[in-house]
Write a protein that binds this DNA or RNA. Structure first.
Length: 611
DNA sequence: AAAAAAT
């Protein structure tokens, strides 16, 4: 049913042409119109988000016919400076005051202020988050870029003119130089291009999509933060697959947007909605959310996606897999979000299976594909071990590992160890058993209340319970500093999940250890796991190689979406052998846009961006 | 088969 990539490009071109003509970005598919929008006024409200019509586009009636409050009017205060700074070199007018009727900078809590009090990890580990990154390794980072007119990467933040306020925040974050994914992704995003980016978490992904969004909103010549009645209209939407990840993104985005006047709000389930509603009412430019709660807010008509100019999906492959895809499709295609090509869409993940890339192209318009290895050249920082452990021996084997770790550790202190299991029940039961056996543990999974989940995470981070037993809820994106060891007590069925899980360690330039318990119930993983470990120059036990060689051929969807991490552009793979070259015009011969190993003799599906 | 995500 899915149209081919070429089709989707021409479709989206057609959509753009149409929307350029009458300035009314409309969904092309038959869409569900939520009840509160059924009578009449969608088109009135869906003018070009570029703001060329200024406030006049709001004159249509909506529900009660309330004219949205344009808060900037009459507010001529110091934000004008912020706007000019940000817009310098950006062409077009500076962004006007985005504050409400008060100077938000006076009230804004300094997000850089008291972090160390909240989590006392930094004293314990005395480490600046970003100083551990091995910047010298930058030149060795393998990069694959494909797409048309790829902007060249930058080497410093100064080259990217994000404005003085953002620059200050970058300094406050102690970011000295952009990470590889930032070097490439930020110019692409600032050029207004849609983007599909593969980069390991911990490599600065969040900043890579936040900076351009914040900067873009700051450059808005017209204040777009408006509301109709109680409905708010965010300009940026960032979706993630877990509540904790949304919180984490929100925390980071708040730092990046400090004193910019760009308001970031988070909304997720499991927490009382009222506080989130109140926060939304105070105005929102960028909404960070999990899908379920967002749908709730949309159905309550407390949020409208009509003004969204920037859409970012973190852990995008997860967001588009079977469990989430219908919800995401509903949000992106069946509410009133501007079409692809009208809004800017950015998808980020460490892994991007081809199937998901194909699916994702529904949401993208002529996107640039980017795959960047991580700082420290992919997994060199993570030592991967795999051990054959019978189901019945797993607990005692884990115990042995933990004992050994404690003895070798500093002052008999247990290093932070993240233990992944398959099921929620299994997590509870293992945690209980560990506690009974003298290993202070906690657990995080979807059957726990949000309070319990957040408490568990804090307790783990602080070292109070240095063992965290987790389901896949903790597999992706979570930035937990100082995790020394990831144990795959139960291996996942999908190699990509394995990649995400072990990525919880070896972060920010530190080394990490990942141990997997393998037995006959993991046969389907034998081949991809052996391949992955080999690519990462890890020692592959002979017995695993044996299992791998006997494993059914091609039983894995990732055979292979790319190298160890990331992937390669599915459009390219599908063009190989079909004598189609969609990209010959854009970047051949360009030092940055050139395709890595396109003629390297790999069969489709087994190309690697990293070799 | 399991996990996540709204109440």
């Amino acid at each position: 049913m899915r149209t081919s990539w070429a089709d989707s490009v021409s479709n989206s071109a057609a959509e753009i042409a149409i929307s350029d003509k009458n300035s009314l970005p409309r969904p092309t598919r038959s869409t569900y119109v939520p009840p509160h929008l059924r009578s009449g006024s969608i088109s009135d409200l869906s003018g070009p988000v570029s703001g060329t019509n200024g406030g006049s586009r709001w004159t249509g009636s909506d529900g009660g016919g309330t004219k949205p409050e344009l808060r900037r009017q009459g507010q001529a205060n110091s934000y004008a400076t912020a706007g000019r700074d940000a817009a310098a070199g950006g062409g077009g007018g500076g962004r006007n005051n985005r504050s409400g009727g008060w100077d938000r900078r006076e009230r804004e809590v300094n997000p850089f202020g008291n972090e160390d009090k909240i989590y006392d990890i930094k004293q314990n580990f005395s480490e600046q988050e970003n100083s551990g990154i091995n910047f010298d390794a930058y030149e060795d980072i393998p990069v694959e870029v494909s797409g048309e007119n790829v902007p060249p990467p930058v080497n410093t933040f100064a080259e990217i003119d994000l404005g003085e306020i953002l620059n200050q925040n970058i300094r406050r974050c102690k970011y000295l130089k952009p990470t590889p994914v930032q070097r490439h992704a930020i110019p692409i995003a600032l050029a207004g291009k849609d983007l599909m980016a593969c980069a390991q978490t911990g490599s600065g992904k969040t900043a890579a999509f936040c900076f351009p969004i914040i900067s873009g909103i700051m450059r808005e010549p017209y204040a777009q933060r408006s509301h109709v009645g109680r409905t708010v209209y965010p300009l940026g939407l960032i979706l993630s697959p877990t509540r904790e990840l949304s919180c984490q993104i929100h925390d980071e985005a708040k730092k990046f947007s400090y004193q910019t006047g760009v308001k970031v709000v988070v909304a997720y389930g499991g927490a009382p909605i009222n506080q989130q509603l109140r926060e939304l009412e105070r105005g929102v430019d960028i909404l960070v959310a999990t899908p379920g709660r967002l749908v709730d807010l949309l159905e309550r008509a407390r949020v409208s996606l009509q003004a969204v100019r920037y859409l970012a999906l973190d852990e995008a492959d997860r967001m588009l897999d079977m469990g989430f895809e219908p919800q995401i499709r509903k949000i992106v295609e069946q509410m009133n979000m501007p079409n692809r090509g009208v809004r800017q869409t950015m998808l980020f993940s460490a892994t991007f299976p081809r199937e998901i890339q194909r699916l994702a192209s529904d949401f993208l318009s002529n996107h640039i594909f980017l795959a960047v290895g991580r700082v420290g050249s992919s997994t060199d920082l993570i030592v991967q071990r795999v051990e054959f452990v019978l189901e019945s021996d797993k607990r005692s084997h884990l115990m042995d590992l933990l004992h050994a770790q404690r003895e070798n550790g500093n002052h008999g202190k247990q290093a932070l160890t993240l233990v992944f299991v398959e099921t929620k029940k299994g997590a509870d039961s293992l945690e209980h058993w560990l506690c009974m056996n003298g290993f202070p543990s906690t657990t995080i999974h979807g059957d726990r209340t949000q309070q319990e989940r957040e408490l568990a995470l804090r307790s783990f981070k602080s070292g109070k319970t240095p063992i965290l037993v987790a389901t896949d809820v903790a597999a992706r994106g979570l930035d937990i500093p100082h995790v020394a060891h990831v144990v795959n007590f139960d291996l996942p069925n999908d190699i990509d999940d394995y990649v995400h899980r072990i990525g919880r360690t070896g972060r920010a330039g530190k080394t990490g250890l990942a141990t997997a318990f393998f037995n006959e119930s993991n046969l389907s993983l034998a081949r991809p796991l052996a391949e992955l470990m080999q690519e990462a120059s890890q020692e592959v036990p002979a017995w695993l190689t044996h299992y791998a060689s006997r494993a059914p051929y091609g039983g894995n969807k990732n055979r292979r979406s790319g190298g160890r991490f990331g992937g390669s552009d599915f459009r390219r793979e599908e063009s190989i052998g079909k004598n189609l070259d969609y990209y010959s015009g854009g970047n051949s011969g360009n030092a940055y846009g050139g395709l890595v190993d396109i003629a390297g003799g790999y069969a489709p599906g087994v190309t690697s961006a990293w070799d």
